[in-house]
C-alpha cells in the first residue's frame, strides 16, 4: 500500500510529561486509558477523537504522548486532571512539546538519580522505608503489609523529628 504523501498526513505534536511520585514503572496501556478517559470526560468523544492522543513511551517517570497539532491546551488541561492510575496516586506534569520525536528526545531533561538502596527511618514513632532524592526530598513508605502510609517530607523534617 502506498503511504499518504506528507501534505495529506495529519500533523502531530509530541509532549513529554513527568510522573510524580518517582519510582513508579507505568504500564503504557493503563496510562493511555487513564488519560483518554480524562480527555473524554473533559471534552467529549468528538474532541477526544480529534485530539487522537496516544502514549509513545512510558519509562521511569517520563512519559511521551503524541496528539494532533493545535490541541496543546486541551492535552495539558486533561493531564492536570489525572490523579490516579491503578489505585495509585499520581500527578502528570507536562514539560516539553515538540513537532518531532527526534527533537523532543534532544530536549529530554537529564534523568535524576535516586540514591541506590532504600534506608529505614523512624518518623513520629513509626518505621518507614525512605527514598531520598533531589537533595531535600524524602518519600516515606510505611513498613507493613496492609494500608501502608505514604508520606512526603524533607530532610529537615526527618532531622527535626
Amino acid at each position: 500500500m502506498k503511504p499518504l504523501p506528507p501534505t495529506l498526513r495529519r500533523k502531530k505534536r509530541y509532549m513529554l510529561a513527568t510522573m510524580d511520585p518517582p519510582g513508579i514503572e507505568p504500564d503504557p496501556r493503563e496510562l493511555y486509558h487513564v488519560i483518554s478517559e480524562s480527555v473524554t470526560s473533559l471534552y467529549g468523544d468528538g474532541k477526544a477523537a480529534a485530539i487522537g492522543l496516544s502514549v509513545i513511551s512510558a519509562q521511569a517517570n517520563q512519559v511521551i504522548f503524541r496528539y494532533t497539532r493545535g490541541y496543546d491546551k486541551e492535552v495539558r488541561t486533561a493531564l492536570a486532571t489525572v490523579t490516579d492510575m491503578a489505585d495509585q496516586r499520581i500527578a502528570l506534569r507536562a514539560k516539553v512539546t515538540s513537532g518531532t520525536l527526534h527533537a523532543l528526545r534532544r530536549k529530554l531533561p537529564r534523568k535524576t538519580d535516586t540514591e541506590p538502596g532504600l534506608s529505614e527511618v523512624e518518623y513520629h514513632g513509626r518505621t518507614y522505608c525512605a527514598r531520598r532524592y533531589h537533595g531535600q526530598k524524602v518519600d516515606l513508605l510505611e513498613k507493613g503489609i496492609k494500608r501502608q502510609e505514604l508520606l512526603y517530607i524533607t530532610q529537615d523534617d526527618l532531622e527535626e523529628s
Binding site: D20, P21, L42, K73, R76, T77, A80, A91, Y152
Partner: peptide, 18 residues
C-alpha cells in the same frame, strides 16, 4: 492535601479556562 494534588500556575490557568 498532598504534593500530588498541587498544580502549577500554568495548569491553574488552563483549568480556570474551563
Amino acid at each position: 492535601c498532598s504534593i500530588l494534588d498541587l498544580r502549577s500556575v500554568e495548569e491553574i490557568c488552563l483549568l480556570c479556562g474551563l
